[in-house]
Design a protein around this nucleic acid. Structure first.
Lengths: 203, 203
DNA sequence: CCTACCGATCGGTAGG
DNA sequence: CCTACCGATCGGTAGG
């Protein structure tokens, strides 16, 4: 099973890139954590840049695949935005290290690869933009500001989650998602809507 | 005027650390941009780490000094939160590169210095926490969630601003601040309040 | 602020 | 996957 080694390299690199950043992680750091000698890494991967790119790409892809279906559902915009936020928070919760790399370390990619990541990130942002714009067009959202600002507010909020979310913390993924969605949808000053279509879980 | 050189080194390093990150910026990069030879840097600064620390510290201090007075004013919580967001956005707008370094590159500081920065950052977050908690306690904010989540949502939104804000963009600092504050205070679905105490600028 | 240099470490490779 | 190594670059310094 030759692929097992490559998989271990990806796992280790994801953790180290996330903890220490890409430029501060040496190939020797990775090889040591894997348990082989530095030169031996190159039997499994082509280089440091390619390693980073494949990690970032798989991370961003997870987000695209999780949010796309809910973003494109036929529900009203507020329901879709809430579902998109929940989907995003779920991916964060299940992939914190991968998310840290995908959201911060992609900047260290060289031109061609960085461009590809930027395109994917733009596609992700566009999903949120379409939801917000649709909400404004249909009158579900009554904000008077450009959709762009609301989207950037939401994305900032979401991009910050991996910095503080702990899977072992008091708050569950669902609670975090609901709290964040409420901030965006209702604001701090509006009564939280009585959680449409959701009721205390019955067993 | 011997301090002029040191000031130029700080300016150049702020730009390079912000653009390329701390570990990806070499002392040779800095010396070249300043127009001196690498070894000559050490006549003006003690080292790379100290250079980073002084930049980060001055950046975080700007935020503390700008937000502290409005956070501690006797106004109601919603007014204070709006003013704190506006103050924050103003500092971002006037110090984008410094902000990028202060918000992202501090992680590369060694233990003692990083600890000091974390303390300052916590003090900053606490200002927002006190506003939100006070708003909840006084009934100005009606959210049913823990203040912590609202604060993290706001900080995420604010921390993301330096990534997209352009001083040359269409939106003014004031418009950006108002849009972001409205997202947090009223949410997307509530009518934007008729901008208390603010009216179309008369000349 | 320059000359001249240090030891350490970097990503990566040839050959097995 | 190891042995053995490459040239390049790193942060920093002694002495002027």
């Amino acid at each position: 099973m030759p692929r097992e080694s490559a998989a271990k390299i990806y796992e280790v690199a994801t953790r180290l890139f996330g903890d220490q950043s890409y430029p501060a992680t040496s190939m020797r750091d990775i090889s040591q954590a894997v348990g082989i000698l530095p030169g031996s890494l190159y039997s499994h991967i082509s280089g440091k840049e390619a390693l980073l790119f494949s990690i970032v790409e798989s991370g961003v892809t997870k987000y695209l695949e999780a949010v796309a279906p809910v973003a494109e559902s036929p529900e009203p915009a507020d329901v879709r935005l809430r579902a998109a936020i929940a989907a995003h928070v779920t991916v964060v919760a299940e992939n914190i290290q991968l998310t840290l790399v995908a959201f911060h370390q992609w900047k260290y990619l060289e031109d061609a690869n960085r461009r590809r990541v930027i395109d994917m990130r733009n596609a992700y942002e566009d999903m949120f933009t379409r939801i917000v714009q649709d909400g404004i067009d249909t009158g579900v959202f009554t904000t008077t500001h450009d959709a762009r600002f609301s989207v950037l507010a939401v994305l900032g909020m979401l991009n910050w989650v991996p910095e503080w979310f702990s899977p072992n913390g008091k708050a569950s993924t669902e609670e975090v998602a609901e709290a964040l969605a409420d901030v965006v949808l209702s604001g701090l000053m509006s009564p939280v809507p009585a959680a449409k279509g959701r009721k205390p879980r019955s067993r």
